[in-house]
């Protein structure tokens, strides 16, 4: 469920639905957009950046985990 829209902050402008490069939202005028195709999210952050109410956050799927180690472990 990548973009999470805070329904209380959302002003129902539909910007996120319009600008999403993957067209993952559906939107009806006056309603909070629905994340209809979450598995097709590219996680580009465009909806987060363009939301005029800052009502969207993006959750990365658990398996996208950005593998890392403490850098000190490479400096022994």
């Amino acid at each position: 469920m990548p973009p999470i829209i805070n329904a209380e902050q959302c002003s129902h402008c539909g910007t996120c639905a319009s600008i999403c490069p993957l067209n993952i939202f559906t939107y009806s005028k006056g309603q909070t957009p629905v994340v209809a195709y979450p598995e097709e999210c590219w996680h580009c952050n465009a909806c987060v950046l363009d939301c005029p109410k800052k009502a969207i956050e993006l959750r990365l799927p658990i398996n996208y985990m950005m593998l890392h180690v403490d850098a000190d472990s490479l400096h022994r």
């Binding site: 999403c20 490069p21 067209n23 580009c44 465009a46 363009d50």
Partner: peptide, 13 residues
């Protein structure tokens, strides 16, 4: 344009 040219494609953001 398939999506919206303000934010589409590999140069989107």
């Amino acid at each position: 344009e398939k999506s919206d040219s303000r934010r589409s494609g590999s140069g989107a953001t």
